[in-house]
């Protein structure tokens, strides 16, 4: 090994010295210059070993982890979309089915109905659309899928530990609320309506009661339940999200209106009032929720300028931007 090679390999020699001190000594003894360089580098490495290492702030780590979690949710959502027909296709099928249904009704029946009730045909169309028809088939299918998801969610929750079980109670309430909403907006099968009416008083899981009798026995076996839950994990997560979303929607709207009203009131009182980063973020989100995209963007951009709220604001801003 000549001097140039020794110079290039000085760090390797320092590392090698631990395992093979005699070998390294032999190399260095050939050249005092190489020995000097070796000693100098070694001394410097010892000196800088005390370079202090500082900790990144925990709140930043928490924000990063939250962002990582959100990406994962998006991945799952995108994955699920692959198995779903696009919404416009579902709407087109529903419209077609309604059209066929209306067309299929004999003209004399319409006239008879009009004569008997004394109402115009156009009004009775509502009744036709509301009646069980091919159009209701996709809705029923969706309902069944939703219920399967809810069932899986419930089974999954039962396999969780106690602290998780507390948080899992929320979707159940959401399901009740959703069931109530559905009952108002669309005709439901009689059995389901009964279940919905019975559930709030008895605290029964509506999603499980309102159909899917064949799955009722599933919670008995935890292992099986876990298996079932994992097979429908996509539907499970989606149902969870939807249930939470619906539960929060009404409350969120009211809270947002209040947040915005409070802020505007305060700013009227004190024109110099400057909201902090968290309030800016909250205002941005609220305006977004209330449909005021311009103001939402303004506040979110301000929130994005603060390190504390940067990631959350950026995520909210991304949601504002249509894909």
């Amino acid at each position: 090994m000549n001097c140039e090679q020794c110079k290039e390999a000085v760090f390797e020699l320092i590392e090698r010295e631990v395992a093979d001190p005699a070998g390294v000594k032999e190399i260095l003894d050939r050249c005092p210059e190489c020995r000097a360089l070796f000693d100098e580098m070694k001394a410097a490495l010892v000196a800088v070993d005390q370079l202090p290492l500082e900790e990144p702030p925990a709140r930043v780590d928490a924000d990063i982890l939250r962002a990582a979690l959100m990406r994962r949710t998006n991945v799952t959502r995108v994955g699920r979309r692959r198995f779903q027909a696009p919404p416009w296709a579902m709407a087109a099928i529903a419209l077609l089915a309604v059209g066929v249904g209306v067309w299929a009704i004999p003209r004399d029946t319409e006239l008879a109905t009009e004569d008997a009730l004394g109402t115009p045909v156009a009004e009775s169309d509502e009744a036709i659309a509301a009646a069980p028809s091919p159009a209701s088939a996709p809705a029923e299918l969706e309902e069944a899928v939703g219920e399967k998801a809810e069932q899986a969610l419930r089974l999954n929750q039962e396999t969780q530990t106690a602290p998780l079980a507390k948080t899992a109670a929320k979707p159940s309430v959401a399901r009740q609320q959703r069931a109530r909403t559905k009952r108002k907006s669309a005709p439901a099968p009689a059995r389901q309506v009964e279940a919905v009416e019975a559930a709030p008083e008895e605290g029964i899981d509506v999603g499980a009661v309102a159909g899917m009798a064949d799955m009722a026995e599933a919670p008995a076996a935890n292992g099986r339940a876990a298996g079932a839950a994992s097979t429908v994990v996509l539907a499970d997560e989606s149902a969870d999200r939807e249930a939470n979303k619906e539960l929060k929607e009404d409350d969120d709207d009211a809270t947002c209106r209040k947040t915005v009203a409070d802020f505007e009131k305060r700013r009227r009182r004190d024109t110099g009032f400057k909201p902090d980063a968290e309030l800016e973020l909250a205002l941005g989100r609220c305006y977004a929720k209330l449909g005021d995209t311009k103001r939402a963007r303004t506040w979110l951009e301000r929130a994005a300028a603060h390190p504390k709220t940067k990631i959350r604001a950026q995520i909210a801003l991304k949601k504002l931007t249509p894909n």
Partner: peptide, 29 residues
């Protein structure tokens, strides 16, 4: 890269020369 590392260490060694006697007194982190 190795050359840059060498130059960096040489520079650090020169800059911290006056502290060298204290390096051994404190426990390495």
């Amino acid at each position: 890269v190795k050359s840059r590392m060498r130059y960096a260490l040489e520079r650090l060694q020169n800059g911290l020369g006056d502290l060298e006697e204290h390096v051994g007194e404190t426990e390495p982190q």
